[in-house]
Simulated assay, not measured.
Amino acid sequence: MEYTKVAVTVTPSNEIANDLLMAQMGELGFESFSETDYGFDAYIPTKDFNSSLLKSIEIPFEDTKLAFTNEVMPDVNWNEEWEKNYFQPIIIDDKCIVRRPFDKVEGSYKHEILIEPKMSFGTGHHSTTSQMLQFILETDIKGTKVLDMGCGTGILGMLCAKKKAASVVGIDIDEWAYNNAIENLALNNISNMTIEMGGAEKIGERSFEIILANINRNILLEDIKKYQKSLVPGGKLILSGFYQEDLEIITQECQKHQLNYYSHKNDNNWVAAAYILAK
């Protein structure tokens, strides 16, 4: 698939501004982001790109200026691109490490996840992904059926698989993510997880004890009712991809569907929250 890269220059450099902009652009159809010295690069399928999309992007900081440039990018070796941009292994609570096959690390970890980071979102560097990994480490996964919705590289589902889930289903609407996740399963020799391409309609009539969804606020609000129908009573729904100020509306929507608030994490204003379906 052909992608368009939009280079976003943020002046002065501001990590919070970057996060706010990425959230807006995610809702406009941009699928992947990588930080740069000047701001970040955002990627969207060329068929979905229109320069008028950029006119709706705003930043609530008066002293911050934005500039955009765009170029069409054909299929490339995304491993080489990530190599140029310095991928650092991620360590979660000294229990889990996410790294590329050739990264050299010291020490040993209970759970090791190998990934070939390509264009798909979810390498573990973003606060939402790392907080989801923390929730999984804290959750009893053994013997459960797990759904990883919007699975990206597949690392959330793979950690569940390594924690001896009975089965894991990963679903993502992006073709890049779908193909990358399948490669990562093979790289980790995981046999109890499968990957499917599509949206929430792919869930069908299946039921799960645990559902993970690291997407964005609007999609979560739309699909919470679908997740609830697929959770067994007492099952856990873990959500991320939204801000602290969105937690109330997410919780209200969950409560409409008998999903009771359990706990949440906050990192740099990004939130991950867990809910339990009433028995």
Rank of each mutant, 00 (worst) to 15 (best):
E2V: 08
K5P: 00
K5Y: 03
A7D: 11
V8F: 01
V8C: 02
V10I: 15
V10W: 00
N18G: 06
L20H: 07
Q24Y: 14
A42Y: 03
P45H: 03
K47I: 15
K47S: 14
L53Q: 15
L53C: 10
K55S: 13
K55E: 11
I59S: 08
L66F: 10
P74W: 10
K84V: 14
Y86V: 11
I92V: 14
D93E: 15
K95W: 04
I97R: 03
P101G: 08
D103S: 13
L114D: 06
P117S: 09
K118D: 05
M119D: 01
H126K: 09
S130E: 14
I141N: 01
T144N: 06
T144Y: 00
T153E: 01
C160W: 01
A161K: 00
K164C: 03
S167L: 08
D174Y: 04
I182P: 00
E183V: 11
L187I: 07
N188G: 04
M193W: 04
T194V: 10
G198M: 07
S207Y: 03
N214V: 07
N218C: 02
L220R: 03
L220S: 04
Y227W: 06
I238K: 02
G241T: 00
Q244F: 09
Q255L: 13
A272G: 13
I276Q: 10
I276Y: 09
A278C: 14
